[in-house]
Amino acid sequence: MNIFRFAGDMTHLISIVVLLLKIYATKSCSGISLKTQELYVIVFLARYLDLFTDFISVYNTVMKLVFIGSSLAIVWCMRMHRAVKRTYDKELDTFRHYFLVLGSFVLALLLHEKFTFQEIFWAFSIYLEAVAILPQLVMLQRSGNVDNLTGQYVFFLGAYRAFYILNWIYRFFTEPHFSRWIACLSGLVQTAFYADFFYYYFISWKNNAKLQLPA
């Protein structure tokens, strides 16, 4: 494992900790898209089917379980926790995420490494992850004002993607047969979605001002 991959995993983990912190500390999930969170649950469950078939390392297994567990906990809080669910901005979270699920699944049936149950679900999870942030980004755009923790959550998620791209570049040059074009192309698309957000995040950081997105 190279340093970029590790940095990517850590920023991914930090983003989840930031989100859990926001929900637990403020007892509020305002500004957070339940649809994006539900998509992440599907992404992790579909991708980590290999928990039952392949063992890579303790690190991999633990991280997979953490990602599945934390994403389930977040969705549970937003749907079931009495205080938290009252703060959910339902009217701002109207993205039709079922289309993303359907579209990703159809794409996985067409484009995959092997036509097996596990490989189809792996490709599906890669495609779905690429677009899963969209409901969240649309929601931020609609609300305009972004609170600090929500802004940091999205920032760390974007950083995770950026580090994974550096990781692939590194692997491409250091490993003789590294070719994972499905993951790399989807990863590029996914990271591109964050470009706009990053732009406004850095401007607000530079000016030491609250993050505001244009309507």
Partner: peptide, 10 residues
């Protein structure tokens, strides 16, 4: 070639 197919990323 076999080991290249291991999906070792998260």
């Amino acid at each position: 070639k076999e080991e290249d197919d291991v999906k070792d990323e998260l």
